[in-house]
Nucleic acid binder design. Sequence first.
DNA 1: GATGAATGAGATTTCATTCAT
DNA 2: TATGAATGAAATCTCATTCAT
Lengths: 194, 194, 194, 194
Amino acid sequence: MPRTNQQNLALREESRAKIMAAALQLFGAYGYERTSVRMIAEAAGVAQGLMYSHFQGKDDLLRAIFSRSIADVRESFARAAAGDPSVSAVERLIRAAFAIVRERLDFWRLSYGARMQQAVLAALGPDLSTWTAEIRGALEQLLRESGVADAATEAELLFAAIDGIAQHYSLEPDRYPLDAVTEALIARFTRSNP
Amino acid sequence: MPRTNQQNLALREESRAKIMAAALQLFGAYGYERTSVRMIAEAAGVAQGLMYSHFQGKDDLLRAIFSRSIADVRESFARAAAGDPSVSAVERLIRAAFAIVRERLDFWRLSYGARMQQAVLAALGPDLSTWTAEIRGALEQLLRESGVADAATEAELLFAAIDGIAQHYSLEPDRYPLDAVTEALIARFTRSNP
Amino acid sequence: MPRTNQQNLALREESRAKIMAAALQLFGAYGYERTSVRMIAEAAGVAQGLMYSHFQGKDDLLRAIFSRSIADVRESFARAAAGDPSVSAVERLIRAAFAIVRERLDFWRLSYGARMQQAVLAALGPDLSTWTAEIRGALEQLLRESGVADAATEAELLFAAIDGIAQHYSLEPDRYPLDAVTEALIARFTRSNP
Amino acid sequence: MPRTNQQNLALREESRAKIMAAALQLFGAYGYERTSVRMIAEAAGVAQGLMYSHFQGKDDLLRAIFSRSIADVRESFARAAAGDPSVSAVERLIRAAFAIVRERLDFWRLSYGARMQQAVLAALGPDLSTWTAEIRGALEQLLRESGVADAATEAELLFAAIDGIAQHYSLEPDRYPLDAVTEALIARFTRSNP
DNA sequence: GATGAATGAGATTTCATTCAT
DNA sequence: TATGAATGAAATCTCATTCAT
């Protein structure tokens, strides 16, 4: 008797999840290039060949991780941004961003590592740049609604500050005073609109 | 007629410089891992083997590029920071930073690409983190001297903002409104000290 | 209601036939090595594992296809050779051979592709060479009975000609003037015995 | 002091020749697919990687062997066909063909093995089919000049016969009565023109 | 010092086969 | 019996590095 469809789906999904989790962790820690398929398979506890039954290749695995992670992050953002209306939207967004960075450290590391490599970017396709543009656009709108004069420029600045903080934090999470810096950033960007 | 010692040395130095320049450019464009020794040798117009008479290996070449570039950048900083006393020290430093990013785009790209990869970081040794700590320290002192209350936190924030801007600019130098963002940053960080 | 034994057997036989048919077609088109078990299973519309319940492995499947095809061909030959007594036996055999080639193009392609590869030959075991010897022997006897002087040599020549034509035809069935060449061959080999 | 250009060229050519010779022999014996790059490198007495400094890949090596062998064979043909004018051109050509088959058994085996595999053919590009067409054309012209009525059909027949004989011989060179069959073929194709 | 041919370890990928259900 | 997820050996290929000249 063959396995039922559901059993098969569950088996497959479990393997797929193990592979993606292992790969995300290793990509984040060592970078895409320095992480071999062998390492991923060992960390996931499966045979090397299995990866190729789930993904077309190492680059496709990267793409899959990216697009799923971005979808997750987008969702988290939406939830967070909708939250407590007693604080300003900008503040909510900043807090949401850093909460997500904390939760998804590996993805963030991977993302920052990947961003600087043209070749890796090619494998990622337009996902990353679409996402970046989306964030910039959202920030700009938020600032415009808050009555900021040069919203486009201010959005670039705020985006860069958030990105820089997230990156410094993801490099040394144990040392970095994320909470304090978060408050300082909020103070700079909500109190006085120059 | 055999070359004089001095001629030999000059030729040698020239080869070394060509290799380092080619490597810096390629590392910046493709990343350390995706740049092969063959690519570097071809771009530099020398034989592959020659690299190994100047450097112990690819990682040593990277280290050499880094330490020389950092020394250069440090010097540029010092010069810039010492400049026009009619503007605040913080403003001078910010302007100096972005001027250097503009000038040394390849190095910056390499630096940002390398930062997220453990293996590359390991190859770099303590150079990068020493330098980072140095910048953070300098910023902190500057802010403290300007009378900022929580100088440590504000230094982290300012550092992250500069770093984020530099990175976004180095990703899309043609599109990025670096001048406008620079002014906005200076406005945020020199006018009101919350 | 469970299937009867007979139904089970019929289903099983059907699977086996589907696998053999798919494999024959693919082996003929792509060659034994370039045809993967997965391709065969997909073309046959069954699971990969099923092949291993019918055959011991890919090589055993090849052997099975060969021995069954050879048996079929042998039978067709016998029928054809027995036919219309108004034409010479040699002519009947030549016509029969090309009729069979037309009908079983895939098998012929597979056969010609396999013949030149030691590994494939080894997998086939003695089947192919036994068969070849049989044909050569039959031709020789036929020619001897027709009163040809050096029947052994003439048999080799006729066999080679038939084989060459069959092969050229199987390479380009749409272009090849098989009918004309058949008549020319018959003319050369039945009119004048040098 | 680096090696002179000539030394380098000689070294490279020697390696290249060793690799091509080993590959030709192995491809002929085991077929293209069953011959691994490792086997070739071992037989040639070089490291695996060296093949990739001479050829773009295994398929490019095959292409290189083919095009060089075909060029050689073409030349041999031309020389042979120009020979002794006391025998007919058709006879000269037939004798030349079999002389070349004897000399270049490995190439012939490879050629026959490759011909039946679409996938391998694709790697070979148009070389093989161009060559085949060339031979067919040459035969046809020869026969036409000899006053044969349906030269096109007769050329197909003669070509197939030569090809079949060559193939049977290359399968069992020790057993095959090539000389006797050659004479029989010449007798059939030069004495009586039906 | 300089060259580039050569090496060989290790990367990615394929695929015949096994096995739990 | 039939399924297809999973395995792992072996294939092709890349590339940092060595070495003879």
